[in-house]
Structure formats: structure tokens, C-alpha cells
Design a protein around this nucleic acid. Structure first.
Lengths: 353, 353
DNA sequence: CGGTAAATTGACAACGTTGCCAATTCCGAA
DNA sequence: TTCGGAATTGGCAACGTTGTCAATTTACCG
């Protein structure tokens, strides 16, 4: 039956040409949807291809076209939810495109610095999506630009630069969240920072500070805690905060994972959320919905950012004109973990100054 | 400076040969670590390659060798944590190999049935890792085997079959968890099932039943709830269970996401965990550590399973001999969400029969 | 019916690499 | 010094596809 195929291996374009009584060029035309193929010829070719279970050889196609149709997603692993959102956004954009996505989980932005272009070349990538904080390493960006490797960065829009970029405005978002806490009457608000290696850390903090300043509320620097964007670091920060008699009435964590850790710490100290302490996060990751009560947070459209970034990258690869920076909207999600400041606050705050 | 390279594009093996004063064949030898290249020649070639920033063209190499060095990971998306563990396990095994990993998130096993081989062919994959429940679709397995596409399934070891497979013994693990609850004195134990499309669902249930039977405890079928392995389905199941006056003293959910939902439902009903009700999960996913209290669960070595499966796949591709099925050990993790059955249980259980 | 443009098809040379095999060089032994 | 075999190197065809360009067929006009 299928004896037309060259022995053993997969059917090639030549096999299809023979079986359909045409030339390999015509078969190629059919499989690339080129015009100028008679309908009847096309039908014959497709029948032959189906009978032989023919699939174009991607390597040969890549070779002759000088293209790999491969793009890379480089990311650190801040949280599985975030990573999966990124991947899904990128993959969904690629659906029905010829491009395929290769994953490059990185240990740290610093470790990759200077090696990224090489990795991309070795893998034959046509373009790169850089997830935070990889897009913020100046050396990497410089290297990619000089190497003419198309890339799009997912990064806070406030960190403006000449290269294409997609993100939300972290400063503004943090300001909005802080305002929400102020509106609830909170004055002793602690802030738990993220990984100092991520630019978002500084931006969220500055948004927080800006809101306090605007409201004329002075900030007790002892309420600034360090963190690493991990659940554990949030737990530790929460314990430090709640161990102090001058404990805050609200805690704003720079991401949800830390906020969840802080919530656990609060429970360890017998504090009710939000009656005794309000807790706010950032990212709207899955974890913010599985704590009890659910976390008030900032929705960051991670999926959309990856989708848009991939879209931009494809345009860049095809040398189409392109907006330099795309800002996506964030959203304040008020859920159960934030509430009115406890009434005793003023007395409490003043008791030990 | 770098004028030796052919204009514009990337340097090719010919450029390196010219610059190093050797032949392309010798350059090829150097880059493939073949023997019989004089040390001094090798050095010259490497210098020239570095100067030209030469990287072998993967497409050309794939074409001539008839290999793509691409393997695919097909998975549904039960939970981000699980997916990331899978990916990381596979990617870590691939480190320092020439192989690269392509992602194929699937809507549902049913939707992919019959299309998987085609997708693999189209993408030029050399092999496939099937994450649950994709490996349990008989049609897919048959198709892959007949198409001679190497594949390894990650699936419960109790679902034995002729094709290579890696997994834990779900039945035994569920039995161990149930025994744990029985040991704590629980007799009214509810079970929340997972997605009926996953074979693990049936196996975990059967392990649960077996443990009860062995202990001589009869099972009230009203305590069997349906679920879909999602947090929301667990929340819903929990609400149904706790709304009933005959509520269980312990709930065993077929995975952690559902258990977390059940924990939230318990809190809605003012039930303390574990004083009023014990809750057990399965998987040891991140979520089991961020609930309060943390969930007692079964540690499933997802990372290791993907690692071992990838290892087996590479062996299969290289036509090396291979163990048909590999069973990996699970572990019962007792944390805060399970405790002694409330003393009033007997009275409570008998009050409305 | 002849002529011209458009539609359709095919021949053949790349693309950059590796496998096969022949050519050359090197080394120690005779 | 010469010889034989091992070490080292190079030449060239092939891998399966697409781009270029020429050849052939078809359709339409006057």
C-alpha cells in the first residue's frame, strides 16, 4: 500500500511528488499555501500526502529559509503561578503560528548576564521574551541589541528604555493600594519589600511612599521590612513585625506570596484578619484566593503581558513597525484581608513614642 | 575586523574553515568532539570560531542527521505548581544534553485523542513525555506505538501496561492516608473525588475504600463527594459536606487544591481545623503549605517523576534497554490540618440515624 | 483564428552540516 | 633510509526543502 515512500523513514516531498504525478516544487507550493496551483492539482497532492502520512521536514525548511521559527521565553521562577501565566500567554499567542516556544528557566539574572545571547544563538532562536527581572540587566539588553537579536522585555513601564517593553505601572499600582489602606483609616502601615534584585521592588516601594507623602502621613522606617518575594520570607517578615509591640494595623506586601506568609504569621500571633490587622498583596496570583480571608491585591495581567509581548516579538521578527512600550492596566481588587483600621489605633500608636 | 564572515548573516562552518586555514570537515570534527584532530589544529579552529562568533546551524545539523533533538512535554493543566514541577524535572534532566524541550499544553485528553501523533510529527519531535491523564488514553497510546513514536507515560504504577511508565502507587498512598485518619480515631471520613477523567481519581478512591474495609469501618456513601481537582470544586464540595448535620469529622480530598477549598469552606462554617474537622490532601503542592493550618498530605515526587521519565525517554530514543515501569516512593506528610477525632463524635454520628 | 498576458508547472541551485572514503602526514620499526 | 600502519585531514555527496527563473499551458481579446 504505502510502498511508495522511501524505505523505512518518513515520506519526503519527493515521495509525494511521485505519487501525485507532479513535481516537488508543486507539492511545496501546496504546503505553503502559495497561489497559482490549480484546485484539482492541489487535491491530488493533498491526497497523496495524506496517503503517505507526509509532514514537511522542519529542519530542511528552516535550513533553506534561514529561519528556525523558534522563540525563547527566559524567566526566573518567582512563583509557579506567575510562570504558568507567562507561558500560557505566550503559547496562546503562538497558536496557529508556525512559531514554537522554547523555555529557558534561569537561576538568576546575574548568572545569565553575558551568556544570554550565546544561549539564544546556540539554540537558534529568532527572538526572545525576557520576563522580569531579566529584562532589567543592562548588560544583557546591550548585548542583545548589539547582537541584533530581537527581544521584548516584560518590565514595569516606568523603567522606560529604547527597547520594546510591556508592563504595568508598578508605582501607580502601589500608590493605589496604599491609598486604599489610608482610606480605611490605617496610619501605621508596614511595607514588606521584594527581592532587591527586581526593579519592581523599588518601584512598588516608591509608590507606597508617594501615597503616604501625599496624604501627609509620616513613615516609621522601622515598619519597612525586607523580603524576597517568597512565602517563607513573608512569614519571617510577618513574625518580626508582629513580635513588636508597636505592630502595624496594616501590612502591604510587595507580592501575594509574601502576603500569604504574613497572614500565617498573623494567625500564629492570634491576630484576626482584618479585625486586628489588614494585609494587602500584589499580583493577584492564585495564592491570593486560597488564603483565608482572601487577599486584597493588585491584579497584574501576567497572561496578557506575555501575550502582548509575544505579539510584539513576532512583529519585531517580521520587521514590522512597533510601539516601543505598551502599558497594560492594573486593577485594585478589594477582598477580605483588608478592613477598617482598629479604633484603638491612635492610642496604641502613641503609647510608646 | 570580522570581514571574513559572509556578508550580513551569521558565520558558517566555511567561514571558520577559511579563517583557521582548515577544511569544513575538520571544523565539524572539532565541534562534534570527534577524535583524530591534532590539539594544535583544534586550538586554531576554536580561536577562529570565537573570533567569528560561530555557532553551528542547528537546522542544517538536524537535516543531515535526520534528528531534531526536540522532545515534547504534553500535559493538561491541573495546577500551576504541578506543571512547573514537571517542567523543571524534565528540563533539569535535559541540561547538558543536546535535547530541547517543547511544551504542549492540552485542553483535555479527549480533545487530543488521535491528534497527538500528528502534532508530534508536525513539530518534528523525537519523543514525548505524557503527563497524566494524557498517558491513560488508550487510543493515544495505541497510535503512538503504531507510529513508532518513542514516549514515556507518567501515570500511576498500578495502571500497568506494556509501554514505559513512571509513577507512584496511588492506591497504596491513599490507603496510607486513610489509615492515618483512622489511627486518629476518625470513623466518619468523607472523600472528595478528583476529575473523573483522570485515572488517579479512581485509584485514590479505591485505596481509601480498601483501608476502610480492612479496618472494618463501613462507608456512608453520602460522604462521597464529586470534585474536579480544582480549588473551587473543593470549596463547593466542602460547603455541601458541612451544610449537612451529619457532617464528617475528617475529609480526605484527592488533591491539595481541593483540600484547600474544603478548608476555606470549613472556616465559613465556623469549624476549627483540626479541632472540629480534619482535612487531608494529596500531592504536597505549594498550596498545602500556605493554608492555615498547613495540610497533611501525600508527597508526590512530581519533579522526580518528570526527571526519571525524561531519562527513560532519552534512553528509548537512543534505543537503549529500559525498565518498563518505574515506581517512585510517596511519603505521608502529617501537618497541622489533621488531628484526633472530636470526642463527641460517636454521639454526633448516632444522633440522627 | 492568431496573439498576448496570465496562470500554472517544473528544473535546478542553493541552504550549512555531517557521513563516507580517499589522500596525506606522521611515527616507530626494520 | 625505507616501509607499513596509524593518525590526521580534506573532498564531495547527501539531507529535504524553498527561491529563482524559465517553460508550458490556459484564457481571453480582437
Amino acid at each position: 500500500m504505502e510502498a511508495t515512500a522511501n524505505q523505512g523513514g518518513r515520506a519526503t516531498i519527493t515521495d509525494v511528488a511521485k505519487r501525485s504525478g507532479t513535481s516537488i516544487k508543486t507539492v511545496s507550493r501546496v504546503f505553503n499555501d502559495e497561489p497559482f496551483v490549480r484546485a484539482e492539482t492541489k487535491k491530488r497532492v493533498l491526497e497523496a500526502a495524506a496517503a503517505l502520512d507526509y509532514h514537511p521536514n522542519i529542519a530542511a525548511r528552516s535550513l533553506v529559509r534561514g529561519r528556525s521559527f523558534l522563540i525563547g521565553l527566559f524567566y526566573e521562577n518567582p512563583s509557579p503561578n506567575y510562570v504558568v501565566d507567562l507561558q500560557t500567554g505566550a503559547l496562546d499567542r503562538l497558536r496557529d503560528e508556525r512559531f514554537r516556544l522554547l523555555l529557558f528557566p534561569c537561576q538568576s539574572a546575574r548568572a545569565m548576564s553575558g551568556k544570554l545571547l550565546q544561549v539564544a544563538r546556540t539554540s537558534g532562536l529568532e527572538g526572545i521574551v525576557l520576563a522580569p527581572p531579566l529584562g532589567d540587566d543592562p548588560r544583557t539588553v546591550k548585548e542583545l541589541r548589539e547582537g541584533r537579536m530581537p527581544f521584548v522585555r516584560i518590565a514595569p513601564t516606568t523603567a522606560l528604555d529604547a527597547s520594546p517593553m510591556v508592563g504595568i505601572d508598578d508605582v501607580e499600582a502601589a500608590r493605589a493600594m496604599t491609598q486604599h489602606l489610608l482610606d480605611l483609616g490605617h496610619r501605621r502601615i508596614a511595607f514588606v519589600q521584594g527581592d532587591p534584585g527586581h526593579p519592581s521592588t523599588g518601584q512598588r516601594l516608591s509608590g507606597f511612599r508617594a501615597a503616604l507623602t501625599e496624604a501627609g502621613v509620616s513613615f516609621d522606617e522601622r515598619l519597612l521590612e525586607e523580603g524576597m518575594y517568597t512565602f517563607e520570607s513573608g512569614l519571617a517578615a510577618g513574625r518580626r513585625l508582629f513580635a513588636d509591640r508597636m505592630r502595624p494595623t496594616a501590612v502591604f506586601a510587595a507580592n501575594d506570596d509574601m502576603a500569604a506568609g504574613i497572614a500565617v504569621a498573623a494567625k500564629e500571633y492570634g491576630l484576626d484578619i482584618p479585625a486586628h490587622v489588614s494585609i494587602a498583596g500584589f499580583d493577584d496570583s492564585l495564592i491570593s484566593r486560597v488564603t483565608w480571608p482572601q487577599l486584597t491585591t493588585i491584579h497584574q495581567p501576567t497572561y496578557d503581558m506575555a501575550h502582548v509581548a509575544t505579539d510584539a516579538l513576532l512583529a519585531l521578527i517580521e520587521r514590522q513597525p512597533l510601539d516601543r512600550a505598551v502599558g497594560l492596566p492594573h486593577r485594585l481588587l478589594v477582598r477580605g484581608s483588608t478592613g477598617k483600621a482598629p479604633s484603638g489605633e491612635a492610642a496604641n500608636a502613641g503609647s510608646s513614642a
